[in-house]
Simulated assay, not measured.
Amino acid sequence: MNTAEDFLKRRLDERQQAGTYRQLKPESSLIDFCSNDYLGFARSAVLKQSIAREVNNHPLSLNGAAGSRLLSGNIQYAEDLEDQIAAYHQSEASLLFNSGYDANLGLLSSLAQRGDTLILDELVHASIIDGARLSYANRYSFRHNDLESLEAKLKLAKGNCYVVIESVYSMDGDTPPVLEIFNLTEKYNAALIIDEAHAVGLYSKGLVCELGLQQRIFARVITFGKALGSHGAIVLGSSNLRNYLINFSRSFIYTTAASFHQLAAIKMAYQLLENSDEAIINLKRNIRLFKEKVNTGETYTLLNSDSSIQCIVLKSNETAREAARQLQTNNLDVRPILSPTVAQGTERIRICLHSFNTENELTLLAATLNKFILLHA
């Protein structure tokens, strides 16, 4: 075995021995308490039909973009879609990216220069961390949602300073004190960037619009693969920011553009979102019902969250895996979140609630959880 293959095998063996080995699994027919399909758009027959009609209405569209947007891959449809999405989220301008990962990577790696400062909440998504690592800026993290910790880092900032948070955190489901964080960044002349991936849907246009801060936030990242049931992402901000990213964001410049079908799916998903008040009401009802029905006792912790993401911290990989196995045995698709994805000692099951989950399904979920917790207290 050559040296490179030996390295691969050794690292994989270490993962297996530690119980942290990752494997792909096929799709499940269990009751969905796992996916990010918060409003049911990914499974929506209405959305599927509207996408098909939109594609059929553009018979000259290509199957693939056949190039980057700066070469042969740009079409007027994409630019019109950017204008429509920017208007929906009440932003001056926007730029499409092929995924949320690409958006965060391209935004953060290109913005902050040597001598600048990036300050990240310690629980931001891996794509934000990776984008920051690719920049030449000074980098700091602050304790999760901790204003004193953030201010201490702001006092150390040099050059242009960018603070990055999420409006709903993907592994805890909680919401930061956005207004207070914005006031701090304004005090220290820092630019605030907010990833809204898990907020759109729970809040139709995102939490920033809900709070009326859309004209004051430097940049927002919106992804389409969660409540919108499609794929891709967009960065919202000023016209200067859009033009800057077109010129300097490597994950935008050096990649083939999204296909027409992907763009059509995004456009139709936004049209459906504009008429989804009932789905959003159902989602918020299901969040409330779940929190009323589940009882974690004194041994385990249900994290404080009013979002679709509800997490019960079970303190070890094995307990989290066993809880997930028990739930799956009862036809409930819930997955464990293990270290090193989360910090050791905070291993958990992550429950995603949806507008389409029935009260009977929620009752079964809570009863199964309550029984497991009672037996393992």
Score class of each variant (00 low, 15 high):
I309N: 08
S110W: 01
V164Q: 00
G237I: 07
L202Q: 04
S230A: 14
R69K: 08
A199W: 02
L39Q: 02
V124I: 15
F97Q: 04
S29T: 15
I281Y: 06
L111F: 09
S307Q: 04
L374E: 14
K187R: 13
T346E: 14
L120N: 02
N357D: 14
G73C: 04
V163D: 02
P176K: 06
K155F: 07
Q326D: 08
G201F: 01
S61D: 09
E361N: 12
A233D: 06
L184R: 07
A87D: 08
N57Q: 09
R53L: 13
Q310N: 14
F290P: 00
D102L: 05
T368H: 02
R325C: 06
L303K: 05
A66H: 05
G64W: 03
T223S: 15
E79C: 01
G67S: 06
N183C: 03
P340M: 04
T185P: 03
K226S: 03
A227V: 05
P176D: 08
L207M: 08
F182M: 07
N57G: 12
I165V: 15
A233Y: 01
G40V: 12
D306L: 09
N145R: 13
L369H: 05
S316A: 09
S68R: 09
A258R: 05
S251T: 15
L111A: 11
S308Y: 05
L303N: 06
E180C: 00
A269K: 01
D121R: 02
G297I: 10
A152T: 11
N282I: 00
L365P: 11
V200W: 00
Q16M: 12
E292R: 10
Q262E: 15
N370Y: 05
A45L: 12
N74D: 06
L369K: 03
N330W: 02
R288F: 08
I349N: 02
F248S: 07
S355G: 10
A137I: 14
H58E: 12
P59S: 07
R325Y: 07
S339G: 09
A86Y: 04
K153D: 11
M171L: 13
I194Y: 00
H261A: 12
N286I: 00
H198R: 07
I194V: 15
E166A: 15
L327T: 02
N240H: 10
F252G: 00
D130E: 15
F41R: 01
Q17K: 15
L47Y: 06
R242W: 00
D277A: 14
R250T: 13
S135G: 03
S249K: 00
L24H: 04
N56G: 03
D80Q: 09
F252C: 01
Y169I: 00
A4E: 11
A126H: 13
